[in-house]
Simulated scan of single mutants.
Amino acid sequence: MMEKPKVALIAHDKKKIDLIMFVKENLETFKACELYATGTTGKFLSEKLKLIVNTVHSGPLGGDIQIGSMLVEGRMDFVIFLRDPLTAQPHEPDISALMRVCDVLNIPLATNLATAEALVVELKSILKNSKT
């Protein structure tokens, strides 16, 4: 059996509720994964959904860069980053760097709920195949 897929979960403030609801709708899939999240997002996921989440710093304090480092080291398989495209972020260069690393390393990255749903379909397939 292969090791659990490693998934980073990140959400800007105005998208945190969307992410929590999305994860809740797909709870069994996410329970079967090794989860990582930036600070506040991880705290909410742990408290609201009782998930085990490995947390790094919050995004503005370097969490996006920490996730990017994990990507570069081959320690992350998927990233779901629900971004708020209508609000300026003070750490926009860090966000851009994280997305660039995903592109360079060909790591699946979902930045909205539609692509997050597609990633969950892939995760379910991986988890199903790992049981056989």
Rank of each mutant, 00 (worst) to 15 (best):
residue 97 A to H: 06
residue 24 K to Q: 08
residue 48 K to G: 00
residue 4 K to C: 04
residue 115 T to D: 06
residue 117 E to T: 15
residue 76 M to F: 04
residue 32 A to M: 10
residue 45 L to W: 01
residue 26 N to P: 06
residue 124 K to R: 15
residue 92 E to F: 05
residue 71 L to T: 06
residue 19 L to P: 00
residue 15 K to V: 01
residue 83 R to H: 07
residue 83 R to K: 14
residue 105 L to W: 10
residue 97 A to T: 14
residue 56 V to C: 11
residue 72 V to D: 05
residue 21 M to P: 00
residue 61 L to E: 12
residue 18 D to E: 13
residue 45 L to N: 02
residue 81 F to L: 08
residue 93 P to T: 10
residue 69 S to F: 05
residue 71 L to M: 15
residue 6 K to R: 15
residue 115 T to Q: 09
residue 36 Y to F: 15
residue 126 I to A: 08
residue 8 A to E: 09
residue 87 T to H: 05
residue 22 F to D: 00
residue 17 I to M: 12
residue 3 E to A: 12
residue 8 A to L: 12
residue 41 T to Q: 07
residue 72 V to M: 14
residue 15 K to F: 00
residue 43 K to D: 04
residue 115 T to W: 05
residue 30 F to C: 00
residue 17 I to R: 12
residue 66 Q to Y: 02
residue 107 I to C: 08
residue 35 L to N: 03
residue 74 G to Y: 14
residue 108 P to V: 05
residue 42 G to A: 04
residue 24 K to M: 06
residue 43 K to W: 01
residue 74 G to R: 13
residue 33 C to L: 07
residue 90 P to M: 13
residue 59 G to E: 12
residue 40 T to L: 07
residue 76 M to T: 08
residue 6 K to P: 03
residue 46 S to H: 04
residue 5 P to A: 09
residue 126 I to G: 05
residue 19 L to R: 00
residue 7 V to C: 05
residue 99 M to I: 11
residue 41 T to G: 02
residue 118 A to Q: 10
residue 3 E to C: 07
residue 129 N to W: 05
residue 89 Q to T: 11
residue 92 E to V: 04
residue 84 D to Y: 06
residue 9 L to T: 03
residue 45 L to D: 01
residue 114 A to Y: 09
residue 81 F to N: 03
residue 2 M to P: 06
residue 120 V to W: 03
residue 6 K to M: 10
residue 130 S to G: 11
residue 42 G to V: 01
residue 111 T to G: 04
residue 87 T to A: 07
residue 71 L to E: 06
residue 97 A to P: 02
residue 23 V to L: 00
residue 55 T to L: 05
residue 93 P to L: 09
residue 18 D to Q: 03
residue 87 T to G: 03
residue 95 I to K: 02
residue 105 L to C: 06
residue 13 D to Y: 01
residue 59 G to S: 14
residue 101 V to N: 07
residue 4 K to L: 14
residue 122 E to D: 14
residue 25 E to S: 14
residue 9 L to I: 04
residue 7 V to D: 03
residue 74 G to A: 11
residue 38 T to S: 02
residue 75 R to P: 08
